[in-house]
Computed example of a mutant assay.
Amino acid sequence: MRRPATDAEAKALASGIRLRIIRLCLDRALTNKEIAERLDANPATVLHHVRTLVATGFLVPQEERRGPRGTREVPYLATTKSWQLSLGGQRAGTNRAMLDAFEQELALLDAEIDAIDFARLGLRLTPEEWEELRVRFQALLDEYAGRERTHGRPYSIFLAMYEDRSRD
C-alpha cells in the first residue's frame, strides 16, 4: 500500500532530472560521473540531485570503488520507494516533472518515433466507472512493478488519465 509522501519526498520527486536519475539507476548502480554522462549534464549539478535523492531514500549508495587514477567512486542504486508513495495534494510539481522527464526520454528516441506505442482514447464514464478504471490500471502497474527486474529489455510506461474538459 502507498503512504503519503513527506514534503521532502514530494519536493525530491518534483524534478524531471531527479526522476530520470532514479530511472537510470533502477537496474544497476551508476556513479555520479556515469549519470552525468548519460544525462549530458554537469557532474556538479548531478551530484546535487543525487545527494537529494540519497537524503530522501530514493537512491542508496553502494560499496565504494576505485576509479581511474585511484579516484574514489560511489555507485548509486535506485530503491522502489517512489512507487510506494502517494503524492496526494502535492502532485502539481511532480506531475510537471513527470512530463518533463517523459519529454526528455522521448527526445532520445526522436529518430525512432515509430518504436513508441502511443494510444489515445476518449471515454464517458460515471464517477464509479472512473474509479474502477483508475484502480484497475494501478493494480496492473503495481503487479508489473513488483516483478523481478533482472532479465528482459528495459521499457518505460507513461500513463496520463484526466478529465477531458475540451469535450464538455
Rank of each mutant, 00 (worst) to 15 (best):
E112L: 07
D142H: 04
G67F: 00
I157L: 14
K11S: 13
R124A: 09
T94L: 11
V46D: 04
R66Q: 15
R167T: 01
R23Y: 07
I116N: 10
L19R: 15
D40Y: 09
Q104G: 01
M98R: 04
E103M: 08
P154I: 01
A107R: 12
T45D: 06
D164R: 02
K11A: 15
P127S: 09
R72E: 05
L59S: 12
I21G: 05
D100P: 00
I116F: 12
H49Q: 13
L108H: 12
R165Y: 15
F58G: 10
M1P: 08
F158L: 08
A101N: 10
R136K: 15
T56N: 15
T71F: 00
H48E: 12
A41F: 08
E103R: 09
D7V: 11
V50Y: 03
P4L: 14
I116T: 14
L125M: 14
F102P: 00
G88E: 06
A145E: 14
S156N: 01
D40W: 10
R153N: 05
L121R: 05
Q138V: 10
T71W: 00
P75I: 04
Q104N: 03
A111V: 10
P127D: 15
V50S: 02
D100E: 15
I113S: 15
G57M: 03
I157R: 07
Y76V: 00
E128K: 15
V50A: 12
A14Y: 08
E163N: 01
S156T: 02
E103A: 14
E148P: 03
Q84F: 01
A115S: 12
Q104Y: 03
S156V: 02
E132P: 00
A41C: 09
V50I: 15
E132T: 06
L109D: 03
A55D: 14
K33I: 10
L77T: 04
A92W: 13
E131M: 12
N32V: 09
Y155Q: 01
M98Y: 01
C25W: 07
W83A: 13
P68A: 05
R2Y: 00
T31C: 08
L141F: 12
L24A: 01
W83F: 09
L47T: 08
R28N: 04
S15A: 12
P43H: 00
A14S: 13
T126Q: 11
P154L: 00
T150L: 06
N95Y: 11
E103P: 02
N42A: 05
I35E: 02
V54E: 11
R147Q: 14
T126P: 07
V46R: 01
A111G: 11
T94S: 09
L123A: 10
E129N: 06
